[in-house]
């Protein structure tokens, strides 16, 4: 296991879980820099010669893993959700927006994998790993990007993480004008309106309404997902809701893997009827 940058000793202690044999700390840089990471991981690889190089399938992971694997001429498989070690290595990953799973076999002695966060249970207990410092000579001339700052986005008047009931809207709403329909439902129910990523990408709702990996993680009592298919990035932000209700015509959409209740029917018929059930007035679209 390798810890690079930041409070490496603190992280090393935290990662010293049962089953971990060795932890290498590399105290290079306060913030993530892919040039430093790429050089460091390649140096560690040369020193340790692992059969499998496991990297995270995160925004930063995808900022250095392909460079490392390409530089080391290792086959790369990204976003693994399962791994089996047999005669060859078999990796399970999804395709077509989680509609199918595939197994790919890697016929090589050494391989780089990025693994999807949350697919494996965290290691537990306390280990007796040997923690040692690993020194890398960073070639500063090939550090050609500089982090100049960070910013939290999605602030503002509404905090969707505070809401008890969220009415959340996705791509199935089709047109910007139709947002009025889910707004009316949220108003009628006294709920807060949130959304999946495409709605924010389209500029139909502000960033502070976005639920998911790059947005907010929410844990309301009730989450009503309307026209949301349930892409993995979205699910990462709402799977902790107590009760999940889905309204989506596609009964095989991944959102139904999480939903407690569902209506596999046209949201443009169901939502107006639901507004009326609670004494509200559906908008004319």
């Amino acid at each position: 296991m390798a810890v690079i940058g930041g409070d490496v000793d603190g992280f090393a202690d935290e990662l010293n879980r049962e089953g971990v044999d060795a932890i290498h700390t590399v105290a290079e840089g306060e913030e993530f820099n892919h040039d430093v990471y790429t050089q460091t991981v390649e140096a560690l690889y040369d020193e340790l010669a692992p059969e499998v190089l496991l990297l995270p399938n995160t925004v930063n992971g995808l900022d250095y893993a392909p460079a490392v694997s390409n530089g080391l001429s290792l086959p790369l498989v990204t976003d693994a959700i399962d791994v089996e070690y047999g005669d060859t290595l078999s990796v399970t990953r999804e395709m077509y927006g989680s509609k199918v799973e595939t197994v790919v076999e890697v016929d090589a002695d050494r391989v780089a994998l990025t693994i999807r966060p949350g697919e494996w249970p965290p290691a537990e207990g306390t280990g007796d790993a040997e923690i040692s410092q690993f020194d890398v000579d960073i070639d500063e001339s090939s550090v050609r990007s500089t982090v100049t700052g960070f910013q939290e986005v999605g602030g503002g008047d509404v905090d969707i993480t505070d809401a008890d009931v969220l009415v959340s809207v996705g791509r199935g709403i089709e047109e910007e004008e139709n947002i009025a329909l889910v707004e009316a439902l949220a108003d009628t129910l006294g709920a807060t309106l949130s959304s999946s990523r495409p709605i924010v990408d389209n500029g139909w709702l502000p960033k502070n309404r976005q639920v998911g990996q790059s947005g907010k993680v929410v844990t309301p009592d009730i989450y009503i997902a309307i026209g949301i298919s349930g892409a993995v990035q979205h699910v990462a932000g709402m799977k902790g809701a107590d009760t999940i209700v889905a309204i989506n015509t596609d009964a095989s959409a991944p959102i139904y893997d999480l939903a407690d209740y569902g209506v596999a029917d046209d949201l443009f018929d169901v939502v107006p009827a639901l507004i009326e059930e609670f004494g509200g007035e559906p908008p004319a679209l």
């Binding site: 913030e31 993530f32 995160t58 925004v59 930063n60 990007s145 500089t146 982090v147 100049t148 700052g149 960070f150 910013q151 939290e152 986005v153 999605g154 960033k207 976005q210 990996q213 790059s214 947005g215 907010k216 993680v217």
Partner: peptide
């Protein structure tokens, strides 16, 4: 980045 944080580079 994840969690509504942007990095300037």
């Amino acid at each position: 980045l994840e969690g509504g944080v942007e990095e300037f580079t």
